[in-house]
Design a protein around this nucleic acid. Structure first.
Lengths: 212, 212
DNA sequence: TCCGAAGGTGAGCGCCCGCTTAGAGCGCCC
DNA sequence: GGGCGCTCTAAGCGGGCGCTCACCTTCGGA
């Protein structure tokens, strides 16, 4: 019986694919610990302890502490990319697609900000080939956003002098939400997503924005 | 005779206030190491080695490794705040002041991205009271930017439905430059600053933007 | 000329890290 | 029902960490 856990926010963490159960518990514990203290400041004893297991149990499911981070990074990036692509390939004009992409990407980075923090800020702790794999996934993020912006420019809906620079800025804006977002703060992930979608449409000079 | 060192970029690092010379060399070495590998992954032996000294020498000038980080954080934040305030208090209308603030703040985060990275991303490694001090400095950043935006709205120059949210977004956009900026990349700090100033003026719906 | 403070070193202490090993518990299939 | 393989634990190894200590040099002033 796979217990489909839910967070307080109602979002389903994407760890269903991790089996067996003990491996998933360890991974969830690692996400929490890495997000709170950072990868290097987290000990394997702390991860195992949070999962209710002995330190040695970790090494039955993962070869090293770094493999845990690698798995978290890959799954997290794939999930974020999936969210972004779904929005990018939806129906509607460039403005609707860009707004939806930013809205859902930001919602993910706010709602899953523990995962997002690990995924976005612990990249350097990975070894060379693992890092290369993650960097490749990031380039796909970039391509997805740039594609929508190029569509908008081609259709005459957007006014963007510097497509590559604007793409970087839009992604940077969304990703940094994971750094500052606070669950006890005044805004919900949905509200931040809506605000940011509007701001991004302004950045690309969208001809007409939907009313707030 | 304080030797005013210059980086390749021509910017003067703000470490002139750190004396004696050995203490400054250690601090500069720590900035490099923290920026490259992160605070927790950096050893005191590495810092001392980069400064050309023995591990024990560090403790003549700093009580602990954390005190080094604290000093770096405080000086870095003060410098960034100074840059921001100078622009915020300059002559001209809200649009000019906001553009200049973003331009110079981004230029600093790109040009001094090693310092900025340490300052922005290693906050959690500080103890409670040191962290509180840094957080107070950050709130002054926020106040400076919000002040300009409020001026623009009051003057009827800006169209901003959500001043607090937009302030957070603008600062977040600027700060995240430190994460992705690459010295060997295609853009100079000046170019990124100009691009971002334009994007931010679009975000606040400035009535007329100066030509690129 | 000698002195004391300031700045430096080599050696190393005690601790905790990532990770390993030997073996115990336990469900499953023949 | 007995052996096997999977999961997990208690104990602990080797090493590198932050930091300290005893001692050495350098140098300006009386």
């Amino acid at each position: 019986m796979s217990t489909a856990e839910e967070t307080a926010g109602g979002e389903v963490p994407p760890w269903g694919e991790v089996t067996p159960d003990a491996a998933r518990r360890l991974l969830v514990a690692a996400v929490e610990a890495f997000a709170e203290r950072g990868y290097h400041a987290t000990t394997t004893r702390d991860i195992a302890g949070r999962a209710g297991m002995s330190p040695a149990a970790l090494y039955i499911h993962y070869k090293t502490k770094e493999e845990l981070l690698h798995r978290i990074s890959r799954i997290g990036h794939e999930k974020a990319l999936d969210v972004l692509r779904t929005a990018a390939e939806s129906e509607g004009g460039p403005a609707e697609r860009l707004a939806e992409a930013v809205r859902s990407f930001v919602r993910w980075h706010a709602g899953q900000h523990t995962v997002a923090r690990v995924v976005q800020y612990e990249l350097d702790a990975l070894g060379p080939e693992a890092r290369a794999e993650i960097v490749a996934l990031r380039r796909q993020n970039d391509a997805a956003v740039r594609g929508i912006i190029e569509d908008g420019v081609a259709a005459g809906d957007f006014d963007v002098p510097d497509v590559k620079g604007t793409t970087v800025a839009v992604l940077s804006l969304c990703i940094d939400v994971a750094r500052w977002f606070n669950v006890n703060g005044p805004r919900t992930p949905d509200e931040v997503g809506a605000l940011y979608a509007d701001l991004v449409l302004r950045m690309v000079g969208a001809k007409s924005r939907p009313p707030a």
